[in-house]
Design a binder for these strands. Structure first.
Lengths: 74, 74
DNA sequence: CTGCATTTGTACGTATGTATA
DNA sequence: ATATACATACGTACAAATGCA
């Protein structure tokens, strides 16, 4: 039986695709973690985990109190 | 042959020893459940179970969103 | 300067599903 | 069947940084 990918990875992968397609442009601000949670119908904690995943992939950067932004393409 | 103790008890016992030795002083904050998991190479859920064990032993107390702390010596 | 709202970041507590022994 | 263990997920709570009225 196929093991389903976890929500946080599904969300991270989807956002990564949007970044790579240009839908989210370099320098652009992403929706807040709470909004991402709503958009994908997951808890904020799960949405945050997805964001942390993208940060680990060096696709985004963020600052406390501001938001998360798409990193410059390398 | 001795039945091997479960991980959660091994972790709890080790932390209890650190509390009794003074390495973790009364009032001091313990590492987070996640950190304990990493320190002992167990899952967070197992680390949390160890912490619950210590709570049952009245050695620690904790507050959601803050952390766990060493109880005052009786 | 002083609150207040927004947002990231951290952390607990609980629950579920799967796997294993 | 029962206990252990891991990974995931949700919800809640609070701290910290930032910006703005």
């Amino acid at each position: 039986m196929p093991t389903r990918p976890p929500h946080y990875r599904r969300v991270a992968d989807d956002i990564e695709a949007k970044i790579r397609s240009g839908e989210y442009a370099p320098g652009q601000q992403l929706p807040s973690v709470s909004d991402i949670g709503e958009l994908y119908s997951v808890a904020r904690s799960t949405a945050y985990r997805a964001v942390k995943e993208l940060h680990a992939r060096n696709l985004i950067y963020g600052q406390q109190g501001q938001g998360v932004f798409v990193a410059e393409a390398k």
